[in-house]
C-alpha cells in the first residue's frame, strides 16, 4: 500500500503540484509552438518541392531536399543538442524557444513529406480542370488541390504531431524542466523517494494530451469528410 499512500502524498502536496504544473506548461508550450512551426514550415517546403523545375526554383528546391534528408536522417536528440549547444548557444536565449525551433524544424521535414505525398495523390484532372477554366496555378492549388490533399493527409500528420509531443520529453537532456523532468525531480526528492508514483502520474498527463489531440484530429477529419460520402 506504499503506492497509494505516496500517491495521496503527491496529490496533497502543493509543492509537487507546482512542479508538475511547471513541467506541464513547458511540455505544452514546446509542443504547440513546434506544431505551428512544423505545419507552416512543412507546407512551405512541400510547395517548394513540388514546384516545377526552373532556374529561380533550383536553389530553393535544393535547400529543401537537403533539409528533408538531413533532418530525417539524423537523431532528434542530436538535432536538439546542436540547436542548444551550437546554433543558439547564446547567453540569455530562451531555452523554450530553442526547443520549439528544434522540434518545429524536425517535424517540418516529416510534415513536408506528408503534404507532398498528399498533393501528389490528388488526381491531376483536378488541376487540369482548374487551369482549363483559366484559373492561375496559385488559385487552383489553394482552392482545389490543397483542400483535397489536406483531407488525405490529416491522419498521417496527426500521427506525426502525436509523436512530436511525446518526443519533447527529451528536452530534459538539455536540462529543461518539462513534465518528464518534473516527474524525475519529484521522484528523486527526499520525501517522495519513489519514481513509480510521479512517473505514473505524469504518464497520465501525456496520455491525456495525446487523447485530446487525437480527438481534435478525428473531429477535423470528420468535418472535412462531410463532402465525400461515397
Amino acid at each position: 500500500m506504499n503506492f497509494i499512500s505516496k500517491l495521496i502524498e503527491l496529490f496533497t502536496t502543493v509543492k509537487y503540484w507546482e512542479m508538475i504544473f511547471r513541467g506541464f506548461k513547458m511540455t505544452i508550450g514546446i509542443s504547440l509552438g513546434a506544431i505551428v512551426l512544423g505545419l507552416l514550415l512543412g507546407t512551405v517546403v512541400a510547395l517548394v518541392t513540388i514546384a516545377k523545375n526552373s532556374k529561380v526554383m533550383f536553389i530553393p528546391k535544393l535547400i529543401c531536399k537537403i533539409y528533408i534528408t538531413v533532418i530525417r536522417g539524423t537523431p532528434m536528440a542530436l538535432q536538439l543538442f546542436i540547436m542548444a549547444y551550437v546554433i543558439f548557444a547564446i547567453r540569455g536565449f530562451p531555452q523554450m524557444l530553442t526547443a520549439i525551433i528544434a522540434f518545429g524544424v524536425n517535424s517540418g521535414a516529416y510534415v513536408a513529406e506528408n503534404i507532398r505525398a498528399g498533393i501528389l495523390s490528388v488526381d491531376i484532372g483536378q488541376t487540369e480542370a482548374g487551369r482549363a477554366l483559366g484559373l492561375p496555378s496559385s488559385i487552383t492549388m489553394m482552392s482545389i488541390v490543397i483542400p483535397q490533399a489536406i483531407k488525405n493527409v490529416i491522419p498521417a500528420i496527426g500521427n506525426e504531431l502525436i509523436a512530436l509531443i511525446k518526443e519533447t520529453s527529451i528536452v530534459s537532456m538539455i536540462g529543461m524542466y518539462d513534465l518528464t523532468m518534473a516527474a524525475k525531480n519529484i521522484g528523486s526528492g527526499n520525501y517522495m523517494a519513489s519514481y513509480i508514483v510521479p512517473m505514473s502520474v505524469v504518464a497520465v498527463f501525456y496520455l491525456g494530451i495525446v487523447y485530446l489531440l487525437t480527438f481534435c484530429i478525428k473531429m477535423i477529419e470528420k468535418r472535412l469528410r462531410a463532402g465525400d460520402k461515397r
Binding site: 480542370a129 482549363a132 477554366l133 483559366g134 484559373l135
Partner: peptide, 22 residues
Amino acid sequence: INIARSRMGMVFQHFNLFNNLT
C-alpha cells in the same frame, strides 16, 4: 494564357468536377 483559357471551355472524359466543392 489564363485569359485565353477563360474564353475556351473544356470538358474531360473523366468529368473532373472539383471534389471538394458543391
